[in-house]
Simulated scan of single mutants.
Amino acid sequence: MLDDFVVRAALAGLGVALAAAPLGCFVVWRRMAYFGDATSHAALLGVALALALELPIFAGVLIVALSMALVVSALAERHVSTDALLGVLAHAALAFGLVSLSFLPGRAVDLSVYLFGEILAVTRADLALIWGGACVVVGLLAWRWQALLTATLNPDLAHAAGGNPRREQLVLTLTLAIVVAVAIKVVGALLIAALLIIPAAAARPLARTPEWMAIWAVILGAGAALGGLQLSFLFDTPTGPSIVSLAAVFFVTTTALAALRR
């Protein structure tokens, strides 16, 4: 069955949705959208590093994404203006990544694959990485769920309860880097942050508790992945952007329904 590229593409989309959606809830709650942008844009530097050192793409992207996330976290703790900082880092990382790729000798690099993803070219090895990464992300979030939630909603309460908000921030940083590394081939560096944020934002009007918001985010993310794949076949459109476009439609729909109920 896995010899069918459509099945592999569908499984890859589901794996990325499973990893990105619950993490995206914390990105939305903590207002870390630009944080996700900076980390995902740094993925191109990771691609250049991997190609230059002949490493697996996953390894290069994970190293650079994790480094970027740690740098952003450290600077934010020093009370540097986070919106300006993240804007600078996001665009600088993207530019340096593109420039670095152009310097690779003797390699014809298809930038569109890394910018917008190529889900239809997912291999068995890619599937193993995507689902392995998704299991790690879901496992970390499930293990630290209550501590992460408390540190997100009320850091002072987390301190009083004996928690360590900085440690929970590091857990989120690690999971974000893993999601970026596993998602780059599916939706590309430019659209990873969108797949993190949009399903979670679309799930917010449907849920009364944080747990249900995460569940709805997974459902909507999976629906966007499978539906966007189907739409790309029907209308011959790029698959990654089709997935994100359908997620945006879900967001508009749930937001409109919530407004009508009010």
Results as ranks from 00 to 15, higher is better:
Ala151Gly: 05
Leu98Phe: 09
Phe233His: 15
Thr239Cys: 14
Leu75Pro: 00
Met32Leu: 15
Phe103Tyr: 13
Gly13Glu: 01
Val88Phe: 09
Ser73Arg: 15
Leu120Gln: 08
Gln230Met: 12
Ala121Asn: 12
Pro210Tyr: 00
Ala151Pro: 00
His79Ile: 03
His91Arg: 09
Val27Ile: 13
Val47Cys: 02
Gly15Asp: 02
Arg261Leu: 09
Arg262Gln: 11
Arg107Ala: 14
Thr39Ile: 15
Ala20Trp: 00
Leu44Cys: 10
Val27Met: 13
Ala59Tyr: 09
Gln230Leu: 15
Ser81Gln: 14
Phe26Gly: 00
Phe233Asp: 07
Glu168Ala: 06
Pro199Tyr: 05
Pro56Phe: 02
Ala128Lys: 08
Ile243Gln: 01
Pro238Thr: 09
Phe116Pro: 02
Thr175His: 04
Cys135Phe: 13
Arg208Tyr: 07
Gly221Ala: 06
Leu129Phe: 14
Trp145Cys: 02
Thr253Ser: 09
Leu170Thr: 08
Gly13Ala: 04
Ile243Cys: 03
Thr152Leu: 01
Gln146Leu: 10
Phe251Ile: 08
Trp212Cys: 10
Val182Ile: 15
Ile198Ala: 11
Gln169Asn: 14
Val187Pro: 03
Val88Asn: 05
Gly106Thr: 09
Ala84Val: 14
Pro238Asp: 09
Thr82His: 14
Tyr34Cys: 07
Ala258Val: 07
Ile197Ser: 05
Trp212Met: 15
Gly240Val: 08
Gly132Met: 04
Ala76Gln: 13
Val88Trp: 04
Leu11Gln: 10
Leu75Tyr: 02
Thr255Ser: 12
Val7Phe: 12
Ala224Phe: 02
Gly46Gln: 01
Ala93Phe: 07
Leu229Ser: 07
Leu170Tyr: 12
Ala38Asp: 02
His159Asp: 06
Ser40Leu: 09
Thr175Cys: 15
Leu206Cys: 06
Ala147Leu: 15
Ala193Tyr: 05
Val137Arg: 03
Leu23Gln: 13
Leu94Met: 12
Gly162Tyr: 05
Phe26Trp: 11
Ala92Phe: 05
Phe235Glu: 08
Ala92Thr: 12
Ala201Met: 07
Leu23Asp: 03
Leu62Met: 09
Leu98Pro: 01
Leu44Ala: 06
Val182Ala: 11
Phe35Ser: 00
Gly106Cys: 10
Val80Ile: 15
Asn164Gln: 14
His91Cys: 10
Ala90Cys: 11
Leu170Arg: 15
Leu55Ile: 09
Gly133Phe: 01
Arg124Leu: 05
Ala76Ser: 14
Ala248Met: 12
Glu168Ser: 06
Met68Tyr: 04
Val252Gly: 12
Val80Leu: 12
Val28Leu: 14
Tyr114Arg: 01
Leu174Glu: 05
Ala224Arg: 01
